[in-house]
Amino acid sequence: MQSLTTTFTRPEGLQDVVTHYCPGCTHGIIHRLVAEVLDELGVRERTLGVAPVGCSVLAYNYFNTDFLESPHGRAPALATGFKRLRPDMIVFTYQGDGDLASIGMSEIIHAANRGEKFTTIFVNNAIYGMTGGQMAPTTLAGQVATTCPMGRDTGKTGMPIRMCELLSGLVTPAYLERVAVHFPQQIIKAKKAIRRAFQYQIENKCFSLVEVLSTCPTNWGKTPAESTHWVEENLKSYFPLGVYKTPEGAK
């Protein structure tokens, strides 16, 4: 019998615990991708994560790295304060759309504009998950949420905010890419983007943000499989995937 080789297993960067995320919620995939990248780049022992308020508020229970728990929307400011004093450490914020694009909009824009050398993993599932399905800044036109039960009326609440496009308008160099994790081939591409983001940080090159379209079966009122298709047919069309900015200027 030849030896048994393992080609896929739980990364060391993830703690061996069952997460609180709902069945089929792709937060779990994104956590795993970040953990795998930190392990592969060999930086996990000198990494600091900053958890937001939202579904991933308990992220610090799942990663094998030191963590800070940030007030709602303020993770980029915590990361700024930490990174400026410990530029030798790898710092990332992990934030949802309510956290980053609503209450934390000022913090993320100014951190990006200062070119803070940390990485942001921005999970966009177009809804407030932890608090039970309210409308988020990225909720799609007509999408039903508990605070827009008749479907989002963009006449009253404005259009969903495209963060990568918004941030790419800043002049300061940065790496911005939008990816998705609803099908395996998307997950593979998402991992490449996350690795590229952390690589820029290791090279102390620029601010890096990866926007990851994610699912919320519970609050979308869909099964996990239906949710992945909803991303493919609706979320992805309003939030086109792709590289929006790189420090080299090339796409």
Partner: peptide, 8 residues
């Protein structure tokens, strides 16, 4: 909030 991060 920068103080929170820095003090950590």
């Amino acid at each position: 909030n920068m103080l929170f991060g820095a003090a950590s």
